[in-house]
């Protein structure tokens, strides 16, 4: 059984705003019955103030899909369209006290439905992203096309890297085998095309166990010394953070996005995503990647927090 939070259960068993909104002037449909998930979001927008005065949903899907839909309506009622559009799928998940990783796509569905409903209100067309190739990671909904793109664009050569860039295999791990296969195939193609040095290409025979970089030069069996890693000054930390972000920017720019350091406060690092990162479904993954890089570089925990670009 899924480990649903009390709030998810409550919003499933006693959903708020379910049903048809007769006076809706924006309707967004996402998902399909074949996929096992579908959501219709109906919103009533005041044409002068652009405030969403009412919202209702109808959802075909699992408990967390229904709860996410209901949560979405609760979050957006009373907000202007501009305010509502700043909500990410993470916000929906957080509102519900978190979702199991395998169920995060339910919150993404809510995020998309809002965009579809707003597009409908404005009389614009809205196109859903379609999957390409076989679904590899069922937990995070990562398909073969997405993995192949990540491997090619970033010259990835290990399963761990694929996990960091796409999240695939990050939860249950049952897709490790198919990821190895995709990685091996794409790397081989890249070597053929002269894009990758054959010596660097993924070699399943050599990848029998994860390669762990020693955190310090010390043997893990050596007695622990009481001397901790030298404490960085704030200036040193900011410098390191800046370096790490500078290293990452070329990758983001390849996707038409960008990332800028705004502020550092204790273990909180505020960044601004821009360009294609805005509204990208994968932006939470991008932030996760940035955070991971920073933690690695600093040798201490930091939390990366996005700053809305309007500010």
């Amino acid at each position: 059984m899924w480990d649903y939070s009390e709030k998810v259960k409550d919003y499933f068993f006693n959903p708020k705003n379910s049903g048809v909104l007769e006076e809706a002037n924006g309707v967004g449909d996402v998902g399909a019955i074949a996929c096992g998930d579908a959501l219709r979001l109906m919103i009533k927008v005041d044409p002068i103030t652009e405030i969403i005065t009412d919202a209702k949903f109808q959802t075909f899907g699992c408990g967390s899909a229904i709860a996410s839909s209901s949560a979405l309506t609760e979050i957006i009622i009373g907000k202007t369209i501009a305010e509502a559009m700043e909500i990410t799928n993470q916000d929906i998940a957080e509102f519900l006290g978190g979702l199991p990783p395998e169920k995060m796509h339910c919150s993404v569905m809510g995020y998309e439905a809002l965009r579809a409903a707003v597009a409908n209100y404005r009389g614009e067309a809205w196109a859903e992203d379609h999957e390409e190739g076989a679904l590899i990671c069922k937990c995070f909904g990562v398909d073969e096309g997405m993995i192949e793109r990540a491997v090619r664009m970033n010259s990835l050569t290990s399963v761990e890297q694929v996990q960091h860039f796409t999240k695939a295999s990050g939860s249950c791990g049952t897709c490790l085998e198919p990821i190895e296969e995709v990685l091996q195939r794409v790397n081989a193609e890249m070597v053929e095309e002269g894009l990758l040095d054959a010596a660097l290409a993924f070699d399943p025979a050599a990848a029998v166990r994860p390669v762990r970089k020693p955190k310090s030069g010390q043997s893990p069996l050596a007695p622990k010394t009481s001397v901790a890693t030298p404490k960085l000054t704030n200036l040193q930390r900011i410098k390191l953070i800046e370096e790490a972000i500078t290293d990452l920017r070329p990758y983001l720019k390849q996707d038409g996005g960008d990332c800028e350091l705004i502020d550092v406060d204790g273990d909180q690092v505020f960044v601004k995503l821009s360009g294609a990162c805005i509204g990208c479904q994968m932006s939470s993954v991008t932030l996760g990647g940035v955070q991971e890089r920073l933690v690695e570089k600093l040798g201490q925990f930091v939390r990366v927090i996005p700053v809305p670009s309007a500010h």
Binding site: F13, C35, G141
Partner: peptide, 25 residues
């Protein structure tokens, strides 16, 4: 899954081959 959750609340245990309970689409 919704049916199973509600049945469970009513103290009834059953199962489904549905996508959501198995984690696949």
């Amino acid at each position: 899954e919704g049916i199973l959750l509600m049945l469970n609340k009513a103290g009834i245990a059953a199962s489904s081959g549905s996508a959501c309970t198995s984690g696949s689409l």
